[in-house]
Amino acid sequence: MARRIYDKEHVKAPGTPLSSKEMYQLPGTIEYTPVAKYRFTTGQALSKFLEELKRGRIAGRKCNNCGRVYVPPRMYCEFCYKPTSEWIYLEGTGTVVTAVVSYIGTARERLEKPEIIGIVKLDIDNKEPQGYDFPGLFHRFCNVSEDDVKTGKIIGARVRPRWKLEEERKGDITDIECFEPIEG
């Protein structure tokens, strides 16, 4: 059986590349706009979480079997596969785990002003939890410069949520405007 060498010299791979212009002008090319709207229910754990955001606090669920605290809350422990045990309420202070500067939006459009986004590991009883998994939120940061991200100054920094005014909150993750560094 003949050996078949698979490299550029021996193989011409099938396929017909098109330029973007060619694609739109081909006879038979069809354009279609989907009209798909959805209503998502928030479920037991997240509906309580959103209600508590309105009150200016962060609700988590604790599993008394393994001691894990879940933020965002879940009604079941992923590890014990049992219902979580109780609600606990966090101040929202925490430590920055990672942060980046985004110059683009959801559909890759350039943003006028770059955004700083990151992950906060939330304190339990004013202490930073240890381990591979932890309660945390993914959110925007304020009062953080692009340089703070690039130099790494922001990683490990202590932050707290900046809440919207109570009357402006609507039970949404954006009731927290952003996380900002705690001075001093």
Partner: peptide
Amino acid sequence: QGVFAYIWDPVVERPLGPNLLWIFALEMRR
């Protein structure tokens, strides 16, 4: 990249207007 919006949680993640690259960037930075 727009289609990736539907891999995010609709309640706690999508309202922040994420782009797919965010998660990679966050992981890379970490």
